[in-house]
Design a binder for these strands. Sequence first.
DNA 1: GTGAAAGCGCTAACAT
DNA 2: ATGTTAGCGCTTTCAC
Lengths: 338, 338
Amino acid sequence: MKKQPVTIYTVAHEANVSMATVSRVVNGNTNVKPETRDKVLEVIKRLNYRPNAVARGLASKKTTTVGVVIPQITDGYFAELAAGIDDVAAIYKYDMILTSLDTVEQQPVQVIQSMLAKQVDGIIFMGHDLSDDLKKEFDNSAIPVLVSGSVVDDDSLPSVRIDYRQATKDSVNFLAQHGHQKIGLLVGYDQTPINAQNRIPAYQEALEAQGLVFDPANVFVGHDNYQESYQLAQQILDQGITALFVSDDLMAAGVLNALTDLGKKVPDDFEIIAGNGTATAQLTRPMLTTISQPMYDLGAVSMRLLTKMMTEGAGEDEELNVVMNHELVERQTTRADQ
Amino acid sequence: MKKQPVTIYTVAHEANVSMATVSRVVNGNTNVKPETRDKVLEVIKRLNYRPNAVARGLASKKTTTVGVVIPQITDGYFAELAAGIDDVAAIYKYDMILTSLDTVEQQPVQVIQSMLAKQVDGIIFMGHDLSDDLKKEFDNSAIPVLVSGSVVDDDSLPSVRIDYRQATKDSVNFLAQHGHQKIGLLVGYDQTPINAQNRIPAYQEALEAQGLVFDPANVFVGHDNYQESYQLAQQILDQGITALFVSDDLMAAGVLNALTDLGKKVPDDFEIIAGNGTATAQLTRPMLTTISQPMYDLGAVSMRLLTKMMTEGAGEDEELNVVMNHELVERQTTRADQ
DNA sequence: GTGAAAGCGCTAACAT
DNA sequence: ATGTTAGCGCTTTCAC
């Protein structure tokens, strides 16, 4: 079925109206006589006309497409966020160009430049690190950008997230209450703002508030990797640590399984709290006690906010930082009694 | 920093050449005198010119964007496929519009129509079901479409996948070898082609080849859902089943954990083989024995093949069905000895 | 309420 | 090797 494309002109011609009128009915403009509208609609249906979004984008300077940057598409935490974004995007008729940061071939800057070249109407950045190059790209672009599910260095960018400092403190306090003297911290990377400026300082503060000593040697880095975290378990044990807060569920599963394989009893010998509350937390045995984040909602709210910024051109300078609630969900890697 | 956009015309003017020449250097056309090229390049850099991909798309009728349809973005199996797709797409400078099928708001047909409206150059469909409406959309479109990580009803669409029938037989045979009389099957949905026409018939054939009886009551449906599969465990037990092949790792984890919670010993009392081999398989205790699929590669090959179809306009009628190898990886939900 | 016409920023013949 | 000139399919004033 070879088809020479049916354009707005074809429809206009067939319906004996002008392109402008067709455009009006397609875009729901009210200034069209009902009879005319019906006639046009009929022709559109008969010819199976579909507006070309590219042409529309060029003419209107809006693409109804948003760029979504994700650290890793297979990461359960960000996948949940993306699900929220995708759902809300669908509601508002936006499509999303999704790109992962961990591709071999592309630098983050290229990823963004490509999105910008495609004239996306906005960008949701899920990522832990914002290089100066990237920041410059964002600044130079006229479109809204927001950070979702993380925090980046400066607060120039609006964000939707939980309070990572408080979540860390809640966890450490909970563990300290159980009498642990050496409480460890396992994060993905220790230089990213979410950790360097939030979780690690909060960990230290909480420790000290509890009268415990902060020792940098008790902070471990697992690169958000299951295997690596699994390997780390022995070291953590060697350090004399008996309780651990882990920023990510997958890493937590790694040390939990390693501990079990090493003959340790969790939570009797060792307690663990994981920081995300993804589906993974319920897969392990024992199930992971977690700080549970409203991941889907974080994504949904992000996209909702972005649509607002895109349509109302809001936000240039008004600081938009939505901080959602987290909660500590006790499962089986912490002791029930105090 | 308000900016009136710098276009190809701005550059041409500033460099004292024509738009055509600028276009040539931007597109790497060799027919440009080196000095001219350098001059243009200098201006491009100085003005920070970035080609507008939308305008380019309209003029060239190529968007270097592909549509990727995924059943659920949080599904580990498809996420792995998507990772492969994304990586290869980056290599070939394609962006991907990713849409999940499980959004509340959108019908599959709308998802596709939106992609088509955006003039994607090709579509990778990861999904188990192809309605007639969808098929019609694909047929009417001039772009290549391929199915990845699944099979759909008719074979009109090229696909990249493993041999699901053989994988099922391998699993059933393995289990039968261990002397089980009642081997069950747990799939996501029993009406999708991948199950209705592949796994279920293969299950039956393998059973009968082993002299065992096929009983439809031993085929369970878990909707690719962990909780639902967890609940199903008791029923499966009640059926007198002692070994199970599960199409998806997450569902397998569900029955495995339920069985453990019910006091059953896996693999001593019950054996399980899961069908995907995602990261989840190694998270559970005991770890899941799986049919392992080269998920990343399936995605990568899909995208590679699609680029070929997009550039060479290949594939209209030549049947392209890439079938990759799977293997049975023994972990801990099956017995080591025979 | 409807039409005419001028772009949107670029590519792609076709000239030269 | 470079410039000219049409479009690509649509939106959007501005008239009528």
